[in-house]
Amino acid sequence: MKILSKLSIAAAAALMTTAVFAANPDVGGAAMFENKNIVENAVNSADHTTLVAAVKAADLVDTLQSAGPFTVFAPVNAAFDALPAGTVDTLLKPENKDTLTKVLTGHVVAGKVSAADLVSKIKQSKDGFYHFQAVSGDALSAQMRGRKVYIYDESGNASLVTIADVNQSNGIIHVVDKVLLPK
């Protein structure tokens, strides 16, 4: 009986240690730290340099460093590169700050929504989609195709969640492969 008790305690300790110290996935070749905020982590990702430049141009750094919590669907550089030629350069111009802000806040949801939360809400829905709203006011939807989660913008464009559940001190990031655009 003493052996079983020691094994149970050791197994429980190992399980708790694994859960507590489970590492965030790397993003863009960089470690992501749960004790850093969204901006502090994003600046280290080689895959998010365009997003970081856009966040700076839209003056959203302070917002995304605040307490939140926020859920950010973070498009990779290739997602911005896939937009029509000149789109990013145009959005980054000071005179287009309002449009840039609308596009970027269309990737942000108030609160911390994990991949498990998204899947649960999708499964509870009647139409196979979880419908929710970005802080920009734009409608977003999540759907599962097989084991993959896609986020849809108002025009019905789908963006695949390629890396889920990157925990931050002020929320969570899900890396996506397309830019979500307002209608």
Rank of each mutant, 00 (worst) to 15 (best):
M1P: 12
K2L: 15
K2G: 05
L4F: 09
I9T: 13
M16Q: 01
T18V: 12
T18L: 10
V20C: 14
A23W: 02
N24S: 04
N24Q: 03
G29R: 14
N35W: 03
N37V: 05
I38D: 01
I38K: 01
N41G: 10
A46R: 11
D47V: 04
T49C: 10
T49M: 08
A53E: 02
A53Q: 04
V55S: 02
L60A: 13
L60W: 14
D62W: 05
T63M: 07
L64T: 00
L64P: 06
L64F: 14
Q65W: 00
S66Q: 07
A67V: 14
T71S: 12
F73A: 13
A74W: 08
P75M: 08
P75S: 02
V76E: 12
A82V: 03
A82F: 00
L83M: 08
L83H: 11
L83D: 11
P84D: 15
P84K: 08
A85E: 13
G86C: 00
V88H: 04
V88T: 08
D89F: 04
T90A: 09
T90W: 07
L91A: 02
E95Y: 06
E95W: 13
N96E: 12
L100F: 11
L100Q: 07
L100R: 05
T101F: 06
V103C: 09
V103M: 04
V103Y: 00
L104V: 06
H107A: 03
V108D: 01
V108C: 04
G111V: 15
G111C: 12
S114E: 02
A115P: 01
A116E: 14
D117H: 12
L118W: 09
S120A: 14
I122V: 12
I122G: 01
K126S: 15
F129P: 09
A134Q: 01
A134H: 03
S136D: 09
G137Q: 04
D138T: 09
D138H: 06
A139P: 00
A139V: 13
A139T: 15
S141R: 15
Q143C: 11
M144C: 07
M144G: 05
M144I: 09
V149P: 02
I151C: 05
S155M: 13
G156A: 11
N157K: 12
A158Q: 13
A158N: 06
S159P: 01
L160H: 12
A164H: 06
N167I: 09
Q168M: 15
Q168V: 07
N170W: 03
G171I: 08
G171F: 10
G171D: 02
I172Y: 08
H174M: 03
V175Y: 00
V175C: 00
V176H: 04
P182I: 10
P182C: 09
